[in-house]
């Protein structure tokens, strides 16, 4: 048992929260001292800001066509050039990034939510219920992820929410396992046993004590599952199952832009592909940094 949790085990409710806050402050300090994850965080903030505000900086809508102005390279008028229907690539790229980030974040958060509830219940109940619930998770794990996502997207018909839905059908398994493992460990701690002893009920116990202490690894998991979801959507786009027109995600833009490797208007591929890569890199670097910062082994 680490010293932090040992201390937690003996303090009452309010102190426990304060201690948890201290833990996060420590983690943040450790994170700040590392250049790469911090750079990644800054990049992500900039990306999110541009994804929200970027399209507003130009006088074009992401779906406004100008057929006579198609396939123009980047210029002062169109900072990222135009696509094959003469649509402004700057507006498209950022609204595409918005859609991709929305898909990634929503899918990751929903995975987390389901995982927390399912894993929390399984871990807390333990015994027979836990055994059964985890068997079910194992079963779903046996189905190849991409195969299932493709099948479900076909069943639901491609659309923004149906794609997210298809991804979370088995996407929550990882976080459920994670939460359950954490809870299983914490559940036997003295302070939890004590809290139970004085009649604190499960939902409160879960929200106040178990969850905050399991949060570290979960945050790391989310940082990795956002880019995974973005990538999966891109693969679906390649198979023609991405978000339907006139919506465009970075994935559908990359997939539409593949042809430019042969036709020459490479900015139509390089810009969305570059953005995907940047998002992937930033999330991965941030995830690595967070993992190191939150690693209990580095706790002093």
């Amino acid at each position: 048992m680490t010293s932090a949790t040992k201390r937690l085990a003996t303090v009452p409710d309010a102190d426990a929260r304060r201690a948890a806050r201290g833990f996060w402050r420590d983690a943040l300090r450790r994170l700040r001292s590392r250049p790469l994850p911090m750079a990644a965080a800054v990049v992500l903030i900039i990306l999110v800001v541009l994804a929200v505000a970027g399209p507003l900086l130009v006088p074009y809508s992401y779906d406004a066509q100008d057929l006579l102005n198609a396939n123009q390279p980047p210029s002062a008028g169109n900072w990222f050039g135009t696509d094959d229907l003469g649509r402004d690539m700057w507006a498209r790229a950022w609204s595409g990034a918005r859609i991709s980030l929305f898909i990634g974040v929503t899918a990751a958060l929903l995975d987390l939510l389901i995982g927390i509830v399912y894993g929390g219940v399984a871990g807390y109940r333990g015994g027979r219920a836990d055994e059964l619930m985890m068997r079910f998770v194992d079963m779903l794990y046996g189905i190849p992820y991409l195969l299932l996502v493709i099948l479900l997207t076909v069943v639901f018909q491609p659309g923004l929410f149906s794609i997210i839905l298809a991804m979370i059908v088995t996407g929550w398994l990882g976080s459920a396992r994670l939460v359950r493992g954490q809870i299983l460990q914490l559940r036997e701690m003295e302070y939890i046993v004590a809290a139970r002893g004085i009649g604190v009920r499960f939902p409160r116990l879960f929200a106040r004590h178990l969850l905050p202490n399991a949060l570290g690894p979960l945050v790391v998991a989310v940082t990795f599952s956002v880019p995974h979801a973005i990538f999966t959507e891109a693969t679906l786009s390649f198979l023609g199952l991405g978000v339907p027109a006139p919506l465009a995600s970075l994935g559908t833009m990359v997939s539409d832009g593949l042809i430019t490797m042969l036709s020459g208007e490479v900015w139509r591929l390089a810009i969305p592909a570059g953005l995907i890569s940047l998002i992937m890199l930033a999330f991965n670097a941030l995830g690595d940094g967070l993992r190191d910062a939150l690693d209990p082994r580095t706790l002093g």
């Binding site: 066509q65 057929l67 229907l85 006139p246």
Partner: peptide
Amino acid sequence: KIVEVLQA
């Protein structure tokens, strides 16, 4: 592409 043009 076609339906996007029709739409516009």
